[in-house]
């Protein structure tokens, strides 16, 4: 009796069970790939990891990566927040075109993006030339890294911010206006605080995306080396043994920072 009941139970839930099994394969794939590398590195080659952590070239590359991606994120936030708000609140001719343009960097190969950026920002081009007149050079410089990261990471910020603004009922802003708040005040007092979680998670996503960029960056700035470029360089010259410790170090630092940001934003929210 009991087995029969259990059997019908399995049958009743067969779709969910099969989906659960198939779905867990994908999760397993991600976990296994990363865990395999991290675990092997820590257990079988602790020395190599410590060596990498003490290597100034590695540390410089990681710091540069985090810093450049941070700058790119700040620029994305400054320019992307107003854009996201306009897209969330207004309908206009060609809006779908604008929205598609925002998503283009996500769908084109990043080496292609790198070539395009290089063509635009090299000193011999009009745009790059204009910048070099005021002392900003992109080829093989930090600014080259920043524009490459900005190009690929901006969509992540803009889309998250737009979703955040869309989730706020415009009536809240309207009520604020009737209570004497100007447009700016109601944005600052109502819209921004209510969407801050979306903006923050968008920024974290953009930052992470910037850190992981490789293809676009090497086209415009092989030097100074950011961590992904250094990892690639060490891989081609020293093989897996030379590059894996840096990769593990980068991944551990990133995971650490993301956990920190996540918990701090949760704590911050609770406090309010």
């Amino acid at each position: 009796m009991a087995t029969k009941k259990a059997l019908t139970g399995v049958k009743r839930h067969s779709l969910s069970l099969i989906f659960l099994f198939v779905g867990s394969l994908l999760i397993l794939f991600t976990i296994l790939t990363l865990f395999n590398m991290i675990f092997r590195q820590i257990v079988f080659d602790t020395e190599g990891l410590l060596e990498a952590a003490a290597d100034p070239e590695v540390i410089d590359a990681i710091v540069l990566t985090l810093y450049c991606s941070f700058l790119a994120t700040v620029i994305a936030a400054i320019l992307g927040t107003p854009l996201a708000y306009v897209l969330a609140r207004h309908d206009f001719l060609g809006k779908t075109v604008v929205e598609s343009v925002i998503d283009v960097p996500v769908v084109i190969p990043h080496s292609v993006a790198g070539i395009a950026l290089y063509a635009l920002f090299m000193s011999r081009s009009p745009v790059g030339g204009a910048f070099s007149n005021i002392g900003v050079v992109f080829e093989d410089s930090m600014w080259g890294i920043v524009v490459a990261m900005l190009f690929v990471s901006a969509p992540f910020y803009v889309n998250a911010a737009r979703e955040g603004f869309q989730s706020i009922n415009p009536r809240l802003e309207r009520v604020a206006r009737t209570l004497g708040a100007s447009q700016w005040k109601s944005f600052y007092k109502i819209t921004l605080p209510l969407s801050v979680r979306h903006l923050f998670s968008g920024a974290v996503m953009a930052w992470a995306r910037g850190i992981s960029e490789f293809g676009a960056v090497i086209m415009i700035a092989f030097y100074p080396m950011i961590a992904p470029v250094l990892i690639f360089y060490r891989f081609t010259t020293h093989g897996l043994a030379g590059s894996q410790p840096i990769a593990v170090l980068l991944i551990l630092i990133c995971i650490g920072i993301f956990i920190l940001l996540r918990t701090s934003s949760k704590y911050w929210e609770k406090k309010r």
Binding site: N169, R171, R174, V175, A176, R177, T178, L194, R272
Partner: peptide, 20 residues
């Protein structure tokens, strides 16, 4: 004249209280 200078109070059907 913009809404904030009209001194007209508004209560929406869904009340629209500021959730934060």
């Amino acid at each position: 004249i913009p809404p904030e200078k009209r001194n007209i109070g508004f209560v929406y059907q869904d009340y629209s209280l500021f959730p934060h």
